[in-house]
Amino acid sequence: MDILIYGTVNSVTFALIALGFTLVYGVSRIPNFAHGSIYVLVGFLTYTFINDLNINYLLAVFISLIISSIIGLIIYRFILIRLRGLAASEIIASFAVGLIILEGLRLQGIGGFKGFIGPFYMLPTFIEGKISILGVFVNYQRLIIIGIGVVTILGMSIFTHYTKLGLSLRAIAQDEHAAMMLGVNSDRTAMISMAIGSALAGLAAVTILPLGNITPEMGYKVLIYALAICIIGGLGSWWGAVFASFLLGFSMKISTALFGAMWESVVLVGGIIFILLVKPSGLLGKQKEFEERV
């Protein structure tokens, strides 16, 4: 029971983390290595808004989500637009942006900025307290994660299938030129996908981060999770990512329960290696190009 509930929480957490990444990759074939940094940045932004500027919690979350999508726009508009289609350069450039953000957060002494170092930074939970489900105690926050995760997954799949903007994202993801012939602007659509992807990273941050401390180092970890899930599920495949999150989420919880916490990362990396050996395009992936890309 323990494993079932916490495994689900874990899986939805992974899904939230990976969805933004897989959306951007699926649409514009850009592996956004700044994903983890945006996640952490949103955490710190919200923290600053709440504690230093005394803004209402929900408003603070809202503002930082908007800022994160604007950051996504800027990254695409000024940096990645020059590199579209050059896989290695895209990775290097977006990772560089990520490094700048993460290390910038740790920078000390400029304009009285103290740098976000140490385990002192926490976001408040939406609702305090916990509840007993079938004899297992669960924080409300973890239930909220599941709720938001499910709503996001369903909401995004409705968005991509039934709105004009979503349909143009799907069109560009499948055949860029064919979509252009039907009047879809490729650069604008990719920019929007970056904005939505970054906002999803931000959403993941504000829902997940209240469970622990915020540190800049988490950016790297989040990026690795996102990459692992996307590789296992198949890069750019929406349901593949969801499926892989559940696979990873549960297998990590089970391995922790059976062997101990240090086996978590073994399962993670082992999963990647195994998938790359057995089915390089990922479980539900359709393209094979990513062998050259990542």
């Binding site: 299938h161 004009k164 349909l167 143009s168 799907r170 069109a171 499948q174 055949d175 030129h177 064919a178 979509a179 012939m181 039907l182 009047g183 879809v184 359709k286």
Partner: peptide, 26 residues
């Protein structure tokens, strides 16, 4: 000016209906 390209270039992962809806974006 709408081009219906050589070799059709259908969106393979989308259903027929979705292909038509994508066509109808404009």
């Amino acid at each position: 000016i709408i081009l219906c390209p050589e070799r059709r270039r259908i969106f393979n992962e989308s259903s027929v209906m979705e292909n038509l809806r994508i066509g109808g974006i404009l």
